[in-house]
Amino acid sequence: MSITIRAFQVSDLDAVIALFQGAVREIASQDYRPEQIDAWVQVDRAAWEKRLQESETWVAIHHHQLAGFGSIEYDGHLDMLFTDPKHQRCGVATALLKWLELAVVKMGIPVMFTEASITAKPFFIRHGFQLIEAQQVSVRGQSFINYRLHKVVM
């Protein structure tokens, strides 16, 4: 599979949001209730634009289609990593994660950390992240379990 990774552009915003919503609805729905999914997929477009522009955000392209995206903040926080459901288990998330790890190393940050969903936790563990703790979070009135994880990259 030929995957190209490039910097996020504002013109990608609507496609990135649609990919996020599709990934949560189709992939994460195996581990979360419908009302949790409905709360999770709500997006404030302006806030997302600001959030993605204020971090290192990268998109993965396969055959001229957006296949995934990921963002890392300047303190090593892996904020988002999502794959289009049609590209799941094809190496997209792995390619993006490797790219984001290199970005963290270039920033001189020794550890990257994230809060992973139940669905994503096994992926991160397979890629060398260590579990810190399970936690309860609230999103738009819905309670979720997710996992704080970290990985030493330097």
Results as ranks from 00 to 15, higher is better:
V24Y: 06
V43F: 04
D38E: 15
H77Q: 15
R45N: 05
R51M: 05
K98D: 03
A23F: 11
F69Y: 04
Y32E: 00
E73S: 10
A39W: 07
G76Y: 01
V59H: 00
F69E: 01
L81C: 03
L66W: 03
D75V: 06
D44C: 12
A95Y: 05
Q30V: 14
W48K: 12
Q88G: 06
H63P: 00
D38C: 06
G76E: 00
Q30D: 09
T83P: 01
L78N: 05
Y32P: 00
W48F: 06
Q42R: 15
A23W: 11
E35M: 05
E73Q: 14
K98L: 13
R89W: 10
L78V: 09
A39E: 08
A67T: 11
P85G: 10
D44Q: 13
E56N: 12
K98P: 05
V59Q: 06
A93W: 13
Y74L: 15
L78A: 04
K86N: 13
G68Q: 06
S29L: 04
T94N: 08
P85A: 09
K86W: 09
V24I: 09
D38N: 15
A47G: 12
Y74F: 10
H64Q: 13
D38K: 03
H64F: 10
G68W: 13
A67G: 11
E35W: 11
L78C: 04
Q30P: 03
V92P: 03
Q65S: 05
T83K: 05
V41A: 05
E56H: 14
Q30T: 14
E26K: 14
Q30G: 09
K86Q: 14
I37H: 14
A46Q: 03
S71D: 07
W58R: 08
K98Y: 10
E56Y: 05
V43L: 03
